[in-house]
Design a protein around this nucleic acid. Sequence first.
DNA 1: CCGGCCATCGTACGAAAGTACAACAGGCTC
DNA 2: GAGCCTGTTGTACTTTCGTACGATGGCCGG
Lengths: 226, 226
Amino acid sequence: MVRVMPRLLIADDHPLFRAALRQAASEHLDDCSVREACDLQGVLDALATDPDIDLVLLDLHMPGSQGLSGLAAMRGQYPAVAVLVVSAHDEPHVVRRVLDHGAAGFIPKSANPGEISEAVHAVLNCGNWLPPALARSVAALPSNPADADLAARLARLTEQQYRVLALLAEGLLNKQIADRLGIQERTVKAHATAIFEKLGVRNRTQAGVLLHMLDLGEPGASAAAS
Amino acid sequence: MVRVMPRLLIADDHPLFRAALRQAASEHLDDCSVREACDLQGVLDALATDPDIDLVLLDLHMPGSQGLSGLAAMRGQYPAVAVLVVSAHDEPHVVRRVLDHGAAGFIPKSANPGEISEAVHAVLNCGNWLPPALARSVAALPSNPADADLAARLARLTEQQYRVLALLAEGLLNKQIADRLGIQERTVKAHATAIFEKLGVRNRTQAGVLLHMLDLGEPGASAAAS
DNA sequence: CCGGCCATCGTACGAAAGTACAACAGGCTC
DNA sequence: GAGCCTGTTGTACTTTCGTACGATGGCCGG
């Protein structure tokens, strides 16, 4: 049975799609609380301020999160919160990686409201959910041990450490990271050292590469100053 | 018409598959010269010693080259040589990227000999070739300008600079790179500066990230010293 | 209440990175 | 042959990184 008063968080950078998700998700729930977020920071803030959230409907492509990095950050900080990934990337190998990084289910953006409602119910009952067609394809794909390893390493990072890592991986200097986070360069160094230790790497370049392994196909139009 | 005495290079790390490709490719060619390579270095060496190579059948997954990096290196050094990519990654968005990086065509590993022969003929006649089914899917995908930009930047690199970049992106120290290439650390620094300038980045971390944008899904089981 | 984890910051130091001034040899083209 | 690009190396310098010893205060669970 569905828990009383489930609390949902809908994370998508598209307001219209958030509304559609909200509608479909709450359709067959007697009573529920729904929050929304439009970027990764908003998701983490919501989880920090509202520790009773049960389920997050997460779009993979949001400001502050390309690929699986948003999912990794969430799973690291709040392992108890279930995540239903919603994405247009419905290739089997992508879904495989999503599940390996701890998502409880996957909803293609092409799904109809009935499927979304079904998925939400299944996951709230502590289960998993995949579209039947995808479930078959994904089952055939081996789980990549490198991905599980990556997830385990990233899960050890603190929230702040994760923020530092994200900026580190963009090639920013320690001083720039310090300014961006409103702290001293010394503190950034302390975080960096902790990050390297937890990730098992020896310098910022390797850390950056490790983080960027969470990207899926499609290169994001990223920084390049001429 | 097919040029007289076309010269092919078959690059795949699987000897058996190389043989199959050789067989299929030369099937309907009256006369041709075929070389083989089993890793990226072998490909570059072959191209360096034999400037008359017309066409390379390139597997995307080879020692020294994950994802598109091998293709990028070839296209940068030898823009005149046609490349037919052979890969099991037959997802449309992967093929889209392959073409954006200058490949003349794409052959799924599931292709039959007839198709391979057809593809080789088409490309030798200065044309392109895709399996009909893929051609439709790929045409629907927009060409990602970020990919074209990436290809343009990488094409400006020298062969040696590319080697340095590859090691740089693994997080190696300048000294380690120097040892690996049998040159002085000072020289590595010179290459690094040139690389940063050509790629439009400001440090090795950003360069590494840029190179790793050539990766396709599946994280390679990469380095991690504990 | 206390031990542990976390974030914050301080000083100092060695190592590495990156830049600026070079130079010389080889190959290529015009 | 002159000019250009590439690869190579040298010295010297500034900046950044990474780590070493610290310290303080907040928060949380036993």
